[in-house]
Every structure is written in structure tokens, then in C-alpha cells.
Design a protein around this nucleic acid. Structure first.
Length: 487
RNA sequence: GGCCCGUUGGUCAAGUGGUCUAAGACACCGGCCUUUCACGCCGGUAACAGGGGUUCGAAUCCCCUACGGGUCACCA
């Protein structure tokens, strides 16, 4: 078997999309699985929309996900350059070949003329398409167009009456009719190749063995195969993976929430979790396990376990998975990740040097079990670590109305002030002693204290929370709750 | 509309003609644990789009219908 060489070839017209990230992942996994090469190429032939800042965003997201590439932009390689706009000379050479062999021709139609033609066809109830008006231009006609100052595009002469079979690794043999594809443009009037053309030249020259890409490219594939045939080049293997859909079943877009990797990163998702989640969208391993590291994914991955049907992006499951990863990650690391959110929310000073790390780590460790993404930390801080307690709902208020409450609180304050040291173990014992001395059930002691301390009927273990809050804050909070409850 | 692709529980999905009275995960519900919640553990509800074939036998193969999606650019 030849060496596996795959590529991820984004166009830098926006941030790395979640679907693109999955394509990149699958390519990466296939390459690593077979000791092959993963290549990143930038398809920047759309000069209007391409931008360096997007390229950087994409590359940064890929690196953040852990998908390092062996060859490509920024890292180099022997098949470069890896930006299409830097490869214009190369495309020219092949354009020339196609022109000379009569497989391509210049077309002088203006976009207005083409639009008119499409309109006319539509009006007649026919398919809008290019009819081949410039296919057989005489020298005189051509000279006249040139004299008019028209800039030609170059079209590929699509052979008629041919069946084109795409032998797809996930979909099987898919057949197309060449009559259904009009003479498409391979070089724009500004001399820059179009996607369909540039992509096949690059894939061929970069010796790409497998092209794994989104299903939206499936209908482009016959065009590309035609070009490969015209140039006498063996095409790579294709694998078209299905799209990622939003909750309502349509293609995932902004209105479904975050669509870019950068946004998930910003919200405090861990790259390991996102990778794990994305891998399971459209692919499944053999066993019943659901949690995998990148290395495990490489080990298990195979294209024949890739599903054909589109997958709905289920944020609930991502949240669960991310929570699992957060719980398994060192507190210190989560604390470090939490800093920017807490600075933003005002819970931490802007000046890093002024941060009490020891305290922060303690606070975060109490919160860790409750986070599904790191940005949730601010809610947690607001609810449990603020100066003020906000009673949550009638349920909380009612708890504080119970008759034993003043007694419990008073004893708690007293015992807390006497407690030394104030640690988890000590607090646990202290709380228990309250139930004993007042001869009350746990529910009558723990719940009111919890509400008085946090304003909520649920939350972290009191013996974890109290030491982190500190004696002073506890007392203040308890008192403010009592005031609010009207006691 | 033409051409393509798809359709197993709310969601991700296993399943490639008999072992399917259809696995697992998320979500949901219940129980245990914890003198709370979560975590964890245990259990439960819930699906082969519809109709025709082929076959002794079909979620699995074929056809039709319905529904969903992709694509028909001097975008990729």
C-alpha cells in the first residue's frame, strides 16, 4: 500500500467551523493510523473573502485541538508552497496543457450575459446552465471580443454522454452523468484558478492518497474526476463524510449557537473533550466505550466505520463529556483556565500577581464537580463566594422560616468562631455536634444552614464550602440571609 | 425543479439475511450512596419512516412513496 497522505484544505474565509474541525480530525486520524502524513494547505483563491487573520485563526484552532500537521503552511515540506495563491505558476502550466490539448477553451461571456442566459432557461422551465456559447469561437470572434477589452475565463470542455463513477470509501459507488455538468470554469478572468481546478492539481502534486471532506463536495467530485482524466492523472481515493446538523436538522449555522472551534475554546471547553465528541459524530468504534484520547482514537479509527447519515450536534452530550474531562483534570489547570473568566466577572483582580492562588485553587476544587464548561465558574463564584447571599425562590425562604432555625444558626455561629482549625474534617465534626446538642435530625440542621450560607437548597458539600469561604464570610452571609428571610 | 446523498428511541449510535422479543452513550424518570444537590453506582421509559417485493427467514437485499439534506457561482 502506498503511503497515506491526507490533507485538510480550508479556505481562510472564516474561523474554523466545527464541521471543518471534524474533517481535519478524520484526516489526521487516518494519517496517524497508517503512519502517514497529515498536510495542511490553504485554499485562498477567493481573494474577496480570504484573509490572513482567518488563516491564523484556523491554524491556531487546529493546534489547540492537538492536530499538528507534518507538512503544510508554516511548517513547510517538499511539496510546497502550501498556499494556493503562491502556486499560480504551477496552475498556469496545467491550464496551458488543457488549452493545447483542446480540453479547455476561453470563454468571453460576461456575467451579465450568463445571468441572462440562466434567466431565459429558467423562464422556459429548463435547467439554468451554461450552453457552451464560446465553445467553438472562430479566430475572428475571439479577436473581436479581445478588442472589446473582454477578459476571458477558461472553461473545461466536459465530454458528453459519459458516466462518471465516484468510488467513495464511505458511500460506495456513486454514479453521475456528464451531461448534467456544464462546461465549468477552471480559471477566472483574473487568471486565478477556481476551486475544482486548483484542488486537483494540488492533490496530485502533493501526492494526496485520500481525500476526506464534507458531503457538500460530493457533487463536485465528478468534475474533478473529469479533470484528472483529461490530465492523465490517477485520482486519489475519496471519502465524503456527512454534514453536521443543528438541533432542527438543518445545516449547522450561527443560529444554532456556537459554530466555530474558537467559540468553544472561549467558553471553556477542553480540546480533548471536543476532539472526543467530534470523533463520535459520524464515526463509532467497535466497543461500548465512549471516552477516548487522541491516541486511542488513532488506534481505533477506520473509514469503514464512518456513518453515511448526517449527525445532529448535541450540545448536551458535549457538555456531559466536557464535564467528565473537567473532573479528571488537575485542579491547578482548571484554576488557571478559570482566571480570565473570573477577572472578567470581577471575582479576581486584573493583575495576575495579586491573585491568591492557594485560595483560588481551593475555591475551584469545590466547584470542579459542578462545571460542564470552565466559563460556568463565574456563576458558581457569584452564587457561593460572594459577600451577599441571594435567596433562591420560596423554597429557600420557607426553609429559613422553620422554628428551629434561630437556634441552629446561633449555635453554628458560636461553634464556627471557636473552631480551629477550620478545615473540612473539623467542620464536618462541628456540624454533626450541632445535631447532637440540639437533638435535631440532619435535615433540620443541614438544610437551613445550607440555605443561610448559599441561598440555595442545593450545592457543594458544606464541609468543603465553609473552609473555603472562611469564618468571617460565613457569618456575614448567614446574617444577611436571616435579614432577607425577615428573621 | 434536475442530479446526488441519506432515513434504527428526543439526540449520538451498534447492527452488513437467522444469535434482534434490536447493544451502548447523552437526555429523561426511579432507586442506592451522601443527614442536601452533583459526582458515582444500579434500574426503567423509549426506535428499525411507509408500502410493495426477493427469501424458509429481512433493520439488514431490490423497487416505489414520503420526509430530510447537499449541489447546480468568475465560493470553496
Amino acid at each position: 500500500m502506498q503511503q497515506v497522505r491526507v490533507r485538510f484544505a480550508p479556505s481562510p474565509t472564516g474561523p474554523l467551523h466545527i464541521g471543518g474541525a471534524r474533517s481535519a480530525l478524520f484526516n489526521y486520524l487516518l494519517a496517524k493510523k497508517h503512519d502517514g502524513k497529515f498536510i495542511v494547505r490553504i485554499e485562498d483563491t477567493d481573494r474577496e473573502r480570504s484573509g490572513r487573520e482567518w488563516e491564523e485563526n484556523i491554524l491556531e484552532s487546529l493546534r489547540w485541538l492537538g492536530l499538528e500537521w507534518d507538512e503544510g503552511v508554516e511548517v513547510g515540506g517538499e511539496h510546497g508552497p502550501y498556499r494556493q495563491m503562491e502556486r499560480l505558476d504551477i496552475y498556469r502550466e496545467y491550464t496551458q496543457k488543457l488549452l493545447e490539448s483542446g480540453r479547455a477553451y476561453r470563454c468571453y461571456c460576461t456575467s451579465e450575459e450568463l445571468e441572462e442566459e440562466r434567466e431565459r432557461l429558467r423562464a422556459k422551465g429548463e435547467l439554468p446552465r451554461y450552453l457552451g456559447r464560446c465553445r467553438n469561437l472562430t479566430k475572428e470572434q475571439e479577436e473581436e471580443y479581445i478588442a472589446q477589452g473582454r477578459k476571458p475565463v477558461i472553461r473545461f470542455k466536459v465530454p458528453q454522454g459519459e458516466k462518471i463513477i465516484v468510488d467513495d470509501l464511505v458511500r460506495g459507488k456513486v454514479s453521475f452523468d456528464s451531461d448534467g455538468v456544464g462546461d465549468f470554469i477552471i480559471v477566472k478572468s483574473d487568471g486565478i484558478p477556481t476551486y475544482n481546478f486548483a484542488v486537483i492539481i494540488d492533490d496530485a502534486l502533493m501526492k494526496i492518497s485520500h481525500v476526506i471532506r464534507g458531503e457538500e463536495h460530493l457533487s463536485n467530485t465528478p468534475r474533478q474526476i473529469l479533470l484528472y482524466q483529461a490530465l492523465g492523472i490517477e485520482p486519489p481515493r475519496f471519502a465524503h463524510i456527512s454534514l453536521i446538523l443543528g438541533k432542527d436538522g438543518s445545516k449547522m449555522s450561527k443560529r444554532h449557537g456556537a459554530t466555530s472551534v474558537a467559540q468553544y475554546r472561549q467558553q471553556g471547553y477542553l480540546p480533548e473533550a471536543l476532539v472526543n465528541f467530534l470523533a463520535l459524530l459520524g464515526w463509532s468504534p467497535e466497543g461500548e466505550e465512549e471516552k477516548f484520547s487522541l491516541d486511542e482514537l488513532i488506534e481505533l479509527f477506520s473509514l469503514d466505520r464512518v456513518a453515511k447519515k448526517p449527525a445532529v450536534f448535541d450540545i448536551e452530550k458535549l457538555n456531559w463529556l466536557n464535564g467528565v474531562y473537567i473532573r479528571q483534570t488537575d485542579v491547578e489547570k482548571i484554576a488557571r483556565m478559570a482566571v480570565p473568566y473570573l477577572q472578567e466577572s470581577g471575582h479576581l483582580p486584573k493583575d495576575e500577581a495579586a491573585i491568591d492562588w492557594e485560595k483560588l485553587v481551593k475555591q475551584v476544587s469545590v466547584a470542579q464537580n459542578y462545571l460542564s464548561k470552565v466559563s460556568d465558574i463565574t456563576d458558581f463564584f457569584a452564587q457561593f463566594y460572594g459577600e451577599q447571599v441571594v435567596l433562591e425562590g420560596d423554597a429557600a425562604r420557607e426553609v429559613l422560616q422553620q422554628e428551629q432555625v434561630p437556634q441552629v444558626i446561633a449555635l453554628f455561629k458560636q461553634k464556627l468562631q471557636d473552631l480551629d482549625p477550620v478545615d473540612s474534617e473539623g467542620v464536618k465534626k462541628m456540624l454533626k455536634s450541632i445535631t447532637k446538642e440540639l437533638k435535631l435530625g440532619g435535615k433540620k440542621v443541614f438544610l437551613p444552614l445550607r440555605v443561610a450560607l448559599t441561598g440555595k437548597t442545593k450545592g457543594p458539600e458544606l464541609h468543603d464550602l465553609i473552609p473555603v469561604l472562611g469564618v468571617e464570610a460565613c457569618i456575614k452571609r448567614v446574617e444577611s440571609s436571616l435579614v432577607q428571610a425577615g428573621k
